[in-house]
Design a protein around this nucleic acid. Structure first.
Length: 741
DNA sequence: TTTGAATGCGCC
DNA sequence: AAAAGGCGCATTCAAA
């Protein structure tokens, strides 16, 4: 078997926020370079359009495709010849992205997010290329207009280098070095598993998400009407502010000044005093005046202009000059921010006075005070956010903004981006548009626009239940946590029972049974415990929890105590992570903090994933004891669970992808389309929906078997999922296997 | 005009 | 005795 390194240079037209958008018909592969394992030099082809043979030829003995940011090239390959790529996967072909592997080998260090080849090549013994192409691209030159010999040198190296260098040669050097290092560090299997996830998200981007534009347009119309109403209502409260102030309800400064009092600074063009003369500044002007003598106009008596009237230029007062100058408008405010202890901003008002927060939580806090417009302001803020981010709007420069700008007019598909190298925890991120932060159904109707591409088709979502709690069970092996997960208890009721000194059954009955006489008060207990456990999982301190859960600090400490006794191995796990971080810590100088010395440490998960932390300035009381820097407890607690949850979803995505590939996407009737940290989205033809969901549910719940298969890990906890299906992503209903006909 | 910081808010 | 984590995108604002 052999690896095949490849890379391509394409046209770079930007559309729907994507640079060199693979789905833009204007873009095609201009130059394609490759090198198969064992060949003495690289090869390349040039193309002038989307020609029939403009795709990568993959020999049958190739089993790894290698590229730097390989998703980009794979998307071009899928557009060029979908079957070529799918057939390669079907015979077991794998991919290796050197950008992704580097990010993982460097413990997801921020410096290696979206790392470039130039950035890492020297550490693999290669040499940076002389690169004229980046400058040309920056100047907007299309690749097809560049000199072919330059492109060739860039891609596969110069003749002097034996055409065995360039991007392709460098990628080969990096790949070989990475495989060696990954093997030595026990990370190879983990990286390979994640590469299949990369194949899955590449497929998701290629499939894209179908948008019902009629629904989007009609919902947007309603939202804009509501926005107009809210704005009209609000404007009554700013009617006394002169128009020239330009009061804006989306300005944090203006809002703070209006609510808490202060000074708005604004600019206006107006006349000003000339420093030299002390008078109003004027434009210079000259006037043509008749030359007079004894009250009579003078005429030329000789020369070329003989007979013409004589004029002279005289300086006169020109128009008054204007320039932008600062003006100030003072408002009294409705409430006193200082006495209410509202959060202060680093921004200042027009005269350097304080600016206070006007965010949602603060507005809720102010809700019962004497500020008349808060409700309408909250409505307007929410509508601006919803319309501007998730529908479409025009900004001040006249540019279109919002998710709908990413919809392709020709087929109403959004080709979103799922990024593998953009988080410190190894989670995925999403962009252009971000399909991981679409408002939920209890907040907005937005999800109704996401529909099936099939006639009468269905969309579906499969979610892991309480993924991070389950992951904590896996990582800690805590007996009580594991048994609770196995018996599928309500965790919040477990905590209520422990805190209030009753049995779990009693707590469950009183919290859940709305008929019960104690229900109201026990339901509050459950909510308190829910807030507590959620915050505690992320490592919040007792005082923060007390504030947001509306409890005394003593009560929070008491609950922490109960928790630690109930799940002792959870705390032990965190301690173990902390110890490994400190044991592996190495000093480094932080350029952002005056090159002060801090430390970096790592913890390696059972799967092989390496997590990295940097230390921060220690709190004052620790500095007094001579400890200068410490690792952040919230970060220590958070990365392993968040990262392992993400890793498990990636492992599953890879397996789902392989299964879909084997079934040829049910002959084009079922597609993987999106993933959001603990869930997967599907687009399904009605004929195959039940069959696909049955298979997908089975795969997603097979996490224990998969962990054993890939990593030899014994997993003590189940990974239950919820399956939902519907006509759009808003109207989903529960799906059960027995609905199979 | 462009860029980065600050603020705010959507998701898990 | 002590800090709630991870993202991307919108607007505003100040500086270049």
């Amino acid at each position: 078997m052999a690896y095949l390194i490849f890379d391509e240079e394409t046209q770079i037209h930007k559309s729907h926020r994507r640079t060199a958008n693979p789905f833009d018909p204007l873009n095609f592969v201009v130059a394609r370079g490759w090198k198969k394992e064992g060949e003495p030099e690289c090869s390349a082809t040039f193309h002038t359009d989307h020609a029939d043979d403009n795709y990568l030829h993959i020999d049958p003995d190739v089993d790894v495709l290698v590229g730097h940011n390989i998703k980009f090239d794979l998307l071009y390959e899928l557009v060029a010849s979908e079957s070529n790529v799918q057939d390669y996967y079907r015979r077991g072909g794998r991919i290796w992205c050197t950008q992704y592997a580097e990010y993982l080998l460097r413990a997801q260090d921020r410096r290696f997010h979206m790392n470039s080849m130039d950035q890492i090549i020297e550490s693999y013994g290669g040499r940076k290329k002389i690169d004229g192409m980046k400058e040309l691209w920056k100047a907007g030159i299309q690749t097809s207009d560049m000199d072919q010999s330059m492109v060739l040198d860039y891609l596969i190296g110069t003749e002097d280098e034996g055409r065995n260098s360039g991007d392709i040669g460098n990628t080969e050097l990096i790949y070989l070095g990475q495989v060696k290092e990954a093997t030595e560090m026990g990370m190879l299997k983990m990286i390979q598993v994640r590469m299949d996830a990369l194949a899955a998200t590449t497929e998701m981007e290629y499939n894209g998400i179908k948008v019902d534009m009629k629904r989007a347009a009609s919902d947007l119309k309603g939202l804009n009407a509501a926005l107009t109403d809210a704005t009209a209502e609000l404007n009554e409260y700013t009617a006394d502010i002169p128009d020239e102030v330009g009061f804006s309800w989306s300005s944090v400064i203006h809002k703070s000044v209006l609510i808490y009092g202060g000074v708005i600074k604004y600019k206006k063009q107006t006349t000003y005093l000339d420093e030299k003369t002390g008078e109003l500044a004027r434009l210079k002007a000259v006037e043509k005046q008749a030359v007079m003598k004894d009250g009579e106009p003078v005429f030329y008596l000789s020369g070329k202009r003989k007979g013409e009237q004589k004029f002279k230029n005289v300086s006169v007062q020109g128009e008054l000059k204007v320039k932008y100058q600062d003006f100030f408008h003072t408002l009294p405010g409705y409430v006193d921010a200082k006495s209410l202890d509202i959060d202060k901003s680093t921004l200042t008002d027009g005269k350097g006075g304080p600016i206070y927060s006007t965010d949602k939580d603060t507005v809720i806090l102010l809700g019962n005070l004497d500020v008349p417009f808060l409700q309408a302001m909250g409505r307007k803020t929410a509508l601006d956010k919803e319309i501007g981010t998730y529908y479409v709007t025009t900004d001040k420069k006249g540019d279109m903004k919002g998710m709908l700008t990413c919809v392709q007019p020709r087929d109403h598909i959004i080709h979103h981006a799922l990024n593998h190298t953009s988080t410190v925890t190894s989670r995925l991120s999403a962009s252009n548009p971000n399909m991981q932060n679409i408002p939920r159904g209890d907040k907005s109707m937005i999800k109704a626009m996401f529909v099936s591409r099939f006639e009468g088709g269905k969309v579906a979502e499969i979610d892991y239940s309480q993924l991070e709690v389950v992951v904590m069970g896996l990582l800690s092996n805590d007996p009580k946590l594991v048994s609770d997960l196995l018996s599928k208890v309500d965790f919040h009721c477990v905590r209520v029972a422990a805190r209030e000194g009753v049995t779990y059954e009693e707590a469950l009955e009183w919290c859940k049974n709305e008929e019960h006489i104690n229900h109201a008060v026990w339901n509050v207990f459950r909510t308190e415990c829910k807030v507590f456990s959620f915050q505690r999982a992320y490592g919040a301190g007792a005082s923060t929890i007390a504030l947001s859960a509306n409890m005394t600090v003593d009560k929070v400490k008491e609950m922490i105590d109960v928790e630690e006794k109930m799940f002792p191995l959870v705390e032990a796990f965190h301690k173990g992570v902390e110890k490994e971080i400190n044991d592996t810590a190495e000093p480094f100088r932080d350029p952002d903090r005056g090159y002060r010395v801090y430390r970096k440490g790592t913890w390696q998960a059972p799967t092989g994933t390496l997590y990295g932390w940097r230390s921060w300035d220690a709190p004052k009381f620790m500095k007094e004891r001579g400890i200068d820097d410490t690792f952040s407890p919230p970060e220590i607690k958070n990365y392993p669970t968040q990262g392992t949850g993400g890793e498990i979803v990636q492992m599953v995505l890879g397996v789902l992808f392989r299964y879909f590939n084997k079934k040829n996407n049910w002959e084009g009737k079922a597609f993987l389309v999106n993933t959001v940290h603990d869930c997967v989205w599907f687009d399904l033809h009605p004929d195959v929906a039940d069959e696909v969901l049955g298979a997908a549910k089975h795969i997603m719940e097979s996490v224990p078997q998969l962990l054993k298969h890939f990593f030899g890990i014994d997993c003590p906890v189940p990974f239950p999922v919820d399956v939902e299906i519907g006509n759009n992503m808003l109207d989903l209903h529960h799906w059960k296997p027995h609905s199979l006909v």
